[in-house]
Amino acid sequence: MWSLFVEGLSHALSLMAHGLGGSFGLAVIALAMIVRLALLPWTLRLAEQGWHRQKTMLALKPRLDALRELHGKDALAYACAAQALHKEHGIAGGLGSGLLVTAVQAPVGAGIYAAIRQGLAGAGSFLWIPRLARPDFLLALTVAALSYAAITLNPAMPAQVKTLLQMLPVLFSFLMVWHLAAGLGLYWAGSSSVNVLQAALLRRRVRCIGTSRSAG
């Protein structure tokens, strides 16, 4: 079953490359963007829900602090009171949908990576990259820059921790792509570009919400 799935993706990549003038690299980027754009309405909605949850939690912080002082060292009593407060304001765990998205993305991503690996043997060059079967330093820098842009644009991340936290995924993405075949790095780049789009759309929605509340 898995091999059929990978073979199907590999065939799709070959057809896309043929339709794009024989460019395997362009086909990889196109496939990555198609997959992420198909999931964008879902992931954007989850990101907006996460932003609303963060804003609500920030507003409830004084009440949570008061509950912590009230219950002292009784951790169970505090947990029950905090849970009741969260429920009162419609704050759920928020993990179910996120896990479902991961459950969908993980096998698809793994299958695409396997299909790309199969096609790398016959892949040639792309843009400045001489061989898609080997890592490329400039591509790693490009993916790191896209990761940085997505995190910087994300309004759900508090400004006081953004500088510290944004460097970890940026560094991780750079090191990973630098040690991957460039063909796989191109998939990462295509996906990261949609992440930037998602962060920009979320930022726009947040601004619209703020504007409408101010007008009201």
Rank of each mutant, 00 (worst) to 15 (best):
L37P: 15
G111W: 07
L139W: 06
V101F: 06
K55P: 01
L186K: 00
R117V: 14
V104G: 03
G50C: 03
A32M: 04
L153A: 12
G109V: 08
L85K: 04
F24C: 04
K73C: 06
L4W: 15
L186G: 00
I129K: 00
I209R: 11
F5Y: 13
A200S: 05
F126K: 00
L40W: 10
M167K: 06
Q198A: 09
K87W: 02
R68A: 15
G98K: 02
V194E: 01
R68G: 13
A140K: 06
R36P: 11
L184F: 01
G183V: 15
A189I: 03
A84F: 07
G50I: 05
V194M: 08
V194Y: 01
G90Y: 09
H11V: 15
A114Y: 03
G22F: 10
A32Q: 00
L153I: 10
W51Y: 14
P135C: 12
Q198F: 01
G93A: 03
A199I: 12
M176D: 00
G119Q: 11
P62C: 01
G111L: 07
V194H: 03
L58R: 14
P169V: 02
Q118A: 11
Q160S: 15
E48F: 13
V104T: 10
G185I: 00
S23P: 01
I91G: 01
M1A: 15
R63D: 01
A66T: 13
Y113S: 13
L171Y: 09
H71C: 10
G22H: 09
A66D: 12
A66F: 06
A145I: 06
L165S: 05
A156N: 10
A145Y: 11
V206Q: 08
H71K: 08
S125T: 12
L64N: 02
Q105T: 07
V101N: 01
K162M: 06
E88W: 05
L146I: 14
L70G: 04
K73H: 09
